[in-house]
């Protein structure tokens, strides 16, 4: 699993990246009450807003950590947005992206680097 400074995670399997937000981000947001996932087929560019996660208090953008085409969105979050709090780095994934530039993943932090980064916040 790789991580961004904006607290998204990416896990790549056979050129498909599963994307979500980290446990740290979920904890910071508080109880997630609504998730807007990207439409399947949408082309996304690393750094663009591609999903929105809402708590009671506020709506927050989730940025695409990698570029590519959205091939699947986690429909289960529609009825159970709180899955993002319960299992942020597993069942609470947002979308799957077919990578157009796999090298982008290599530029992201690994877990020790991300955890070191969290210590600086």
């Amino acid at each position: 699993m790789r991580f961004t400074k904006d607290h998204e995670w990416v896990e790549v399997d056979d050129n498909i990246a599963t994307v979500g937000i980290t446990a740290y981000a979920a904890e910071q947001l508080g109880d997630v009450v609504f998730v807007e996932t990207p439409d399947v087929g949408k082309a996304v560019k690393a750094g663009d807003g591609f999903a929105v996660v809402e708590s009671v208090k506020a709506a927050s953008d989730v940025y695409a950590p990698v570029s590519g085409e959205v091939v699947e969105a986690n429909g289960a979050l529609g009825d159970a947005p709180d899955t993002v709090n319960a299992e942020p780095e597993a069942a609470g994934w947002f979308a799957k992206v077919r990578l157009s530039n796999p090298a982008e993943v290599e530029a992201l932090m690994d877990r020790p680097a991300y955890e070191a980064y969290l210590q600086t916040l």
């Binding site: 508080g30 109880d31 009450v33 708590s55 009671v56 208090k57």
Partner: peptide, 12 residues
């Protein structure tokens, strides 16, 4: 304080 440890939902 915007929230305590329980968070907005539980506090509400």
């Amino acid at each position: 304080p915007v929230q305590y440890l329980d968070g907005v939902m539980k506090e509400h």
